[in-house]
Amino acid sequence: MNTEIILETQALQKRFTGRKPFFGEAKVVRAVDGINLKIRRGETLAIVGESGCGKSTLARLLVRLMSPSDGTVVYQGRNIANVPAEDMRHLRRDLQFIFQDPFSSLNPRMTIGALIEEPLLVHNIGDRQDRRAKVAAMLARVGLPASVIDRYPHEFSGGQRQRIGIARALITEPKVVIGDEPVSALDVSIQAQVINILQDLKEALGLTLVIIAHDLAVVRHMADRVAVMYLGEIVEQGPVADLFANPKHPYTAALIAAIPVAQVGARSAAAQLQGDPPNPIDLPTGCRFHPRCPHATEVCTTTRPALAATGPDRWAACHHAATLSLQGHAATGQTRSAAAQARFDLYRDRSADAARTTTPT
């Protein structure tokens, strides 16, 4: 396993301050709150959690689509959190982003060829003929014919538009690609096609992938490691198979237990969460998860737990991670992760993928 760190965050924070009321102080949301994260060259890291946990904000901070309030983002030894705009423009050739909604990220007035070629123009890569050839080759890699090069985004389906977004992100041959829920808006068969494309391109181009997701079936299928977020913090990290089989944090166990399985009686009562996440502008003291945790004790209400090692390449932010028994949840995780894997195995055959892929008419 490659242990070289290509991208790293240190005490990374992003705070959003609301409008100051006539009386009192302005409210502050700590969307990302002191995150330390190391991303290894060539791996696929999944960042998961409920909506509103800060994972999409973290993704944008990693490529400086947002500037952090504090902390650093280090790419290949260089802090990119405060580099000049011109230097950041050059770095963006190596750091690319795939958006959740491909249609809103594609200019409707530009042809597909122009959209994919644009990053090459920005970075002065090749002449017109070379760029046209690169665009055609990239379209072929994502499963679209060169004949679509002069068509417009509205002429394509959602899955095809996501392929176009992937082609646009990869045309500069980046080293790191961040995907913000790149398949969440697609049905399961199209999800599998797009995921297979990403995995094939990762191997062919030597990419490092960071995938933001809330669907653990997707995560189980494609990730090497998982970081679990809750209210701006990472509460657990580990290799995907190990984390699914033996979660160390109650929140992770609850997420795994919630994976849907198409089987009568498969709904599990284990690790079911009670209530909604706390108000992010009025966070609880101590562990932020304790109001919903069935294993919380007094120390959880007063002392914020640190992210600490719980085994080889395993980390958890829980006061009771070393002693908490989640064996029942581990069995649930194994069953449900197997179901998640089977869900995507149905669409693994590349010839079936190609048969289901249609081109716009």
Results as ranks from 00 to 15, higher is better:
Val210Asp: 12
Val235Asp: 14
Glu203Ser: 08
Arg267Ile: 15
Asp187Ile: 10
Val261Tyr: 08
Val264Ala: 03
Pro239Gly: 07
Ile149Asp: 10
Ala254Phe: 10
Ser189Val: 15
Ala169Tyr: 06
Phe156Cys: 06
Ser157Pro: 12
Ala213Arg: 02
Gly206Asn: 04
Leu186Arg: 02
Lys175Met: 08
Glu233Trp: 05
His154Gln: 11
Leu144Gly: 09
Leu243Arg: 00
Ala185Leu: 10
Leu243Met: 14
Glu173Asn: 05
Pro153Val: 02
Asp200Gly: 03
Pro174Cys: 06
Val235His: 07
Asp187Ala: 02
Leu216Lys: 01
Ala258Val: 13
Val188Phe: 02
Val177Thr: 13
Pro174Trp: 03
Gln199Phe: 02
Pro145Gln: 06
Lys175Val: 14
Leu186Thr: 10
Arg168Gln: 12
Asp242Cys: 08
Asp150Pro: 12
Arg220Gln: 14
Val228Pro: 10
Glu155Asp: 13
Pro174Met: 00
Gln193Ile: 14
Glu181Asp: 07
Asp180Glu: 13
Gly158Lys: 00
Gln237Ser: 01
Ser189Thr: 13
Asn196Arg: 00
Ser184Val: 10
Gln162Asp: 15
Met229Cys: 09
Ala217Gln: 01
Pro250Lys: 09
Ala241Thr: 14
Val194Cys: 06
Leu144Glu: 08
Val194Gln: 06
Val218Met: 03
Ala213Phe: 01
Leu186Pro: 07
Gln274Thr: 11
Lys248Asn: 11
Gly179Leu: 05
Val183Arg: 08
Leu144Tyr: 04
Pro174Gly: 06
Arg161Glu: 14
Ala258Pro: 13
Val264Trp: 09
Asn196Val: 05
Val240Gly: 03
Arg168Leu: 11
Gly206Cys: 02
Ile149Tyr: 00
Gln263Tyr: 08
Ile195Val: 14
Ala167Lys: 04
Ala167Met: 10
Val228Gly: 07
Met229Arg: 04
Arg225Tyr: 11
Gly159Ser: 11
Pro145Ala: 07
Ala241Val: 15
Ala217Gly: 12
Lys202Leu: 14
Asp224Met: 03
Ser268Met: 08
Val188Gly: 09
Ile171His: 03
Ala241Tyr: 02
Ile195Trp: 00
Ala213Gly: 09
Thr208Asp: 12
Ser189Trp: 03
Gln237Pro: 11
Leu186Ala: 03
Asp150Lys: 01
Arg267Gln: 14
Leu243Glu: 15
Leu209Ala: 08
Ile178Ala: 01
Ala253Asn: 09
Glu155Asn: 01
Ala227Glu: 15
Ala167Ser: 04
Val218Trp: 05
Glu203Gln: 05
Leu231Trp: 03
Tyr251Thr: 10
Ala185Asn: 11
Arg161Gly: 10
Gly159His: 01
Lys248Val: 15
Glu233Leu: 04
Thr252Asn: 04
Ala223Gly: 05
Ile164Trp: 03
Ala270Thr: 15
Pro247Arg: 06
Met229Val: 15
Leu201Cys: 07
Val235Arg: 01
Pro260Ile: 01
Arg220His: 15
Ala217Ser: 14
Glu173Phe: 00
Pro247Thr: 07
Leu144Cys: 02
Ile166Ala: 06
Val176Tyr: 04
Thr208Gln: 09
Asp224Ser: 05
Glu155Leu: 01
Ala245Cys: 11
Val176Glu: 07
Asp150Cys: 04
Glu173Arg: 07
Val226Cys: 03
Ile259Gly: 09
Leu207Lys: 06
Ile256Ala: 04
Ala213Pro: 10
Phe244Tyr: 11
Gln237Ile: 12
Ala270Asn: 09
Leu243Asn: 08
Val218Arg: 06
Gly179Ser: 10
Ile195Asp: 10
Ile234Asp: 13
Ala227Tyr: 06
Met229Thr: 15
His214Val: 12
Asp150Thr: 11
